[in-house]
Write a protein that binds this DNA or RNA. Sequence first.
DNA 1: TTATGACTTGAACAATTGTTCAAGTAAACC
DNA 2: GGTTTACTTGAACAATTGTTCAAGTCATAA
Lengths: 200, 200
Amino acid sequence: MKYNEQRAIDSATDLFWKKGFQGAGMRDIQQALDMRPGSIYARFENKEGLFTRVINQYAEHGRARLQAVSEHQEPLVALRTFFVEEVTGASEKRYKRQCLLVKSLAEFDNLGEAAKQAILNGMDALHEGFGQVVAALSAPPHNMIKGDESLIAHWLQEQFVGLRTLAVYASDARINLLIDKLLLDLKGHWPALNRPASDE
Amino acid sequence: MKYNEQRAIDSATDLFWKKGFQGAGMRDIQQALDMRPGSIYARFENKEGLFTRVINQYAEHGRARLQAVSEHQEPLVALRTFFVEEVTGASEKRYKRQCLLVKSLAEFDNLGEAAKQAILNGMDALHEGFGQVVAALSAPPHNMIKGDESLIAHWLQEQFVGLRTLAVYASDARINLLIDKLLLDLKGHWPALNRPASDE
DNA sequence: TTATGACTTGAACAATTGTTCAAGTAAACC
DNA sequence: GGTTTACTTGAACAATTGTTCAAGTCATAA
């Protein structure tokens, strides 16, 4: 019987999300995927190989969701929905609130080269996704933002990371207010680019 | 010869910061502290006991630094300096840019109860520290902010977490611009409190 | 000198880690 | 029907994990 590879990666995603790369032992993985060690190694080569696949799929999924936001006819509304879903959803599995990429970044030094690259590429993929959203908001017919698109994309990514981390232990009411604040600031002022960091 | 306990905890902080709780093996710890297993267990009871001490000291240090910011005669200037130091400092040991509490939060499910509590208490300590800064900025003679102090403190904490995570892999120039943006937004508008999350 | 107490040592322990591999199964191809 | 190919199984492996403990060190007190 051929095992459904997609389902295996989904299960592994859940497990790594909950326990992290080091925290998830091969025996946990065997149980979660309902596969015996030989099968896992035949298919994914390694624990790290499986992890790399998980990270790649996770990042690609996030990038695709952000692209969908950018193609929505009301990108700002879609962006708010995106944040609310990612940050206050999964209240039954609270560990899913923290971004898997950020969680994996915490184990960076203990990972092999392939996994490291996957994480960095994943970060770049998210940045690219946010960049598409910013581009949509800046262009006609919306013209909602003016400023350096790449910088604003990094800013959104920063907000995303911060919110999701805080959401692990703060109340939903708080998080919703912080999303409100985020949308206010998005339309707010931006620092001039050609000026080195200064005060006021 | 009696070993300097403070130096031991400092060395352990460095090690846990670099490798994480699970990633740092007892033999790594023995080498870093230059202590034999028996001594470590006599003094700290556990790997987890040592880790808990590290987290407690780290959080208390952060809280104290924020209190100093709040007592500065120019709290806003001190706040900027605080962010710049925490986020773009330690370029030689880049792993120190990520907040140790956030890094530890990623291992939450794999820790014992004592360590979990230490992390949550540490988060609360940071929130309290940011709260003191907000209080100083809101009160005379500065009157720089008006809004719910606890909410703004959570917002600052969110910015802190997001920035430090991004700073692990983004350029310093980017990070400095994002700090500029942060200070603009701090003085900007805040969502009304008595209203549930809504769109503009 | 002897006894006490705090501290240190490092070999050793059981348990767990990621990984391998010879043997087995079953569908596909000639 | 026989061979190949892809996949599966689970016992077993060496290495590493956190932890223990009998024995040793050394300053101080009696």
